[in-house]
Write a protein that binds this DNA or RNA. Structure first.
Length: 265
DNA sequence: ACAGTCAAGCGGAATC
DNA sequence: GATTCCGCTTGACTGT
């Protein structure tokens, strides 16, 4: 079963909360069963994949933390929620707290899935939600509060989730662009290295020639070609020298038709 | 088992 | 001071 299949099981986030809170706040089973159904009502399209493995230790902490926040807001006196770790803090979300409080008032029956204690800890956006978000991102990579609100409403997500999605999406775009740039620079570097190597070799050859005989005498006519980029042959005193205050070429290299042309990028 | 992906948290900087 | 964005990080989950 793929992810998409899992996401279409109809198991809501509310159910996940239910299951986990059932496991760790046994004394409040009924209360949390009601919570789950209320979530279903609020987020009908916010589906999550099923996990048959049950809950992990981390998940338990997170839920307890959420419940803790919830209960604290209600001035409740549960003592079973005092031991969640720091990581739990990250899971808090004011909007969820409000929703959880609201669910207190709702009474309903628990579904079959709830009994299993199978809940996903991590939200995965559905394909449809991702598509809408992607489309929106193509139009504008940042959102103003109104757009965020509208998108959240449309997708049955919290505005914070939409905001986070856009932040992460921008980060992914940037990372991708960085990779592209890096690849480009790498190629450029390789080209320049090759060019440098070639020029070094050429320089050594010229030095060797200079040692044995005068410059022009030694160069075969075919190799003494005008450089296409600087339009000089590299020796001062010819008719091209008038173009520049410097008798020697500003780009002191020779065009060799038998090697690659200048490949600087 | 491990690497990769992704939603989400945190802290700091920027902006208003 | 509130808000937003960014960079970094974490942890759940997936694919191999």
């Amino acid at each position: 079963m793929g992810f998409e299949d899992a996401c279409n099981t109809g198991l809501s986030l509310g159910l996940g909360l239910l299951d986990r809170s059932e496991n760790h706040l046994q004394s409040h089973d009924h209360q949390h069963k009601r919570l789950s159904l209320r979530f279903d009502h609020l987020f009908p399209s916010l589906t999550l994949g099923l996990s048959s493995e049950g809950t992990s230790q981390t998940a338990l902490k997170i839920d307890v933390g959420k419940v803790h926040v919830d209960l604290c807001r209600q001035a409740s006196s549960f003592s079973a929620v005092s031991s969640y770790s720091n990581s739990v803090k990250r899971e808090r979300d004011p909007s969820w707290e409000e929703i959880e409080i609201e669910t207190e008032k709702v009474t309903s029956k628990v579904s079959d899935e709830d009994e299993e204690g199978s809940a996903r800890k991590k939200l995965r956006l559905t394909k449809e939600q991702s598509v809408v978000l992607e489309d929106s991102f193509k139009e504008h990579s940042t959102l103003n509060p109104k757009q965020k609100e509208a998108l959240a409403k449309l997708l049955n997500l919290r505005p914070r989730q939409v905001e986070v999605w856009f932040q992460n999406r921008r980060a992914r775009t940037k990372l991708k662009q960085t990779e592209v740039d890096c690849e480009l620079l790498k190629k450029c570097c390789e080209t320049l290295t090759d060019e440098n190597r070639r020029l070094q070799k050429e320089l050594q050859e010229l030095k060797a020639l200079k040692l044995t005989a005068p410059f022009y005498m030694q160069l075969p006519a075919a190799t003494l070609t005008m450089c296409p980029s600087c339009e000089r042959i590299g020796s001062g005193g010819d008719q091209n020298s008038s173009k520049s205050p410097f008798p020697m070429v500003t780009k002191p290299h020779f065009y060799n038709p038998f090697t690659h042309p200048s490949a600087a990028c």
